[in-house]
Structure formats: structure tokens, C-alpha cells
Simulated assay, not measured.
Amino acid sequence: MNKPDHRSETFAEKLLLLDRFGAGQMLAQAADQETPLKAVERLVVPALEEIGKRWEQGSVALAEVYMSSRICEELADQILPPSSAERINRPKIGIALLDDYHALGKMIVCAALRASGYEIQDYGRLTAAELAERICRDSVSIILVSTLMLRSALQVKTLRELLDAAGSPAKIIVGGAPFRFDPELWQEVGADGTGNNAAEAVRAAARFVEELAQC
């Protein structure tokens, strides 16, 4: 991935001020200077990472994280439409809740991924068996699972077993309160990666996308 652009700090400030117009101008100018995808990688991704860090530190509210992600999603769609080759030609990525009703975390991560130039299949709320079936059916390469309850986090182990039994090579990235409280839990349930916030989830997905591109 490209090195972060120094302007990403200014871009992050505009997002937190809900300055959609100013942020849009910055992203459009960057897209004129290089490819739209590189502009997203240089401005949007590091800006969302910075906002995610501030949320972890308690200086930014969760609502600000969500609104920043949504603004970025809208702006990214303008310069990098969902039908563009840059999005379509990437590995298939899905996101879901495992029998969990708390959807805010999933919504934020989904917006952040789309804002970062990825097309995401949102599967909503499913059981482990239902999600495994859809991953195999749609040939999903990377699946992100958002949880709030421990019982939901533990179902990732069942998902892993079902995918292995079906011969699916899909990578599992997990996030949510149970995995923040227990830093080792993601490995115990058989996930391939984890993220404490939306920015870390994007970074984990990007790492697997790069690995798959080299295969």
C-alpha cells in the first residue's frame, strides 16, 4: 500500500468537522493528480486510521467515527464508482453479524471499507451455517465478522470449521468487544486476523488482498 499522504491529517480534520465540501475538494484534487484508487489510499485510509486512533484514546465519539466513514464512502463513490474496474477486480469481501443484533460496528466497518475502495457484500445477520453457505456460494475471499456478545464471538469457531470442511480458503477477520477484552480470543476461535476499530479492519483486509494478489 502507498505511504500515507501528509494531507491526510487535514483531511481527517475536515471529516470531524463534517466539512463534506472541503473534504470532497481535497479528494477530487488528489484524484486529478493520480489514480482515484491511489487518492483514496493516500487520503481516506490514513485519515480513517487517525480518527480510529482518536476514538480508542477517547477524544472522538463513536458517532463521529461513523459520520466520517459515511462521508468518505460517499466521496469515494464519486471518484471510484462501484462499477469501476478498480473495485470489481479486487477479491470478494463480505461482512456479517453472527447471530448478533448489534449492527453499529458492522455499519462503521462496512462504510470504512467501501470508503477505502473495496466492494463489500453485506450479509446482515446470519447463523454460522448460513454464513458459511453464502461464503462458499459467492466465492468470498475475505469475510469480516462483527460481534458484541461473547456467544456470537465464539460462533466464529463453528464458522471456521464449516469453511474448512467445505474446502473454502476464505480468510476470517473478526472485531468487536469480546476481541478487545481478550486479545487472544481471535486466535482461539480460528480467525486469521482482527481489528479493534474500523481502520484496523481495513488494514487487515488490505493485507490479505495484497497476499491474494501475489498468489
Rank of each mutant, 00 (worst) to 15 (best):
A206L: 03
V189K: 10
I120N: 02
A39G: 06
G94W: 00
E133K: 02
G124R: 04
A204F: 06
T158L: 15
W55N: 02
K106H: 02
G175C: 07
M107W: 05
R180M: 05
A128H: 04
N196L: 07
V44Q: 03
G190E: 00
S83C: 14
E211S: 14
A30R: 12
R207P: 01
T194C: 07
P81T: 10
F181M: 10
E56C: 03
K92F: 11
T158M: 07
A213V: 01
V209H: 04
A30N: 04
T10L: 11
K171I: 07
R203Y: 07
Q78D: 08
D138Q: 13
A47T: 01
L98C: 00
A206E: 14
D138L: 01
V202I: 01
T10M: 11
I143P: 01
W186G: 11
V156I: 15
R7E: 09
F21R: 15
P169A: 08
G58W: 05
G105D: 06
E133Y: 01
L98Q: 11
E161V: 05
D164C: 01
C72P: 08
M67P: 12
E119V: 02
W186E: 05
A96E: 05
Q57S: 13
S59H: 08
R87M: 04
L16P: 01
N197A: 08
A129Q: 13
T10P: 03
V65A: 12
L27K: 00
Y101Q: 07
V65C: 15
I108C: 02
A85M: 13
Y66E: 02
T147P: 05
V109C: 12
I135T: 10
V60L: 07
A61K: 08
H102C: 10
A165N: 13
L97K: 03
A166H: 10
V174P: 02
G167T: 03
M1P: 02
A129C: 03
R160E: 08
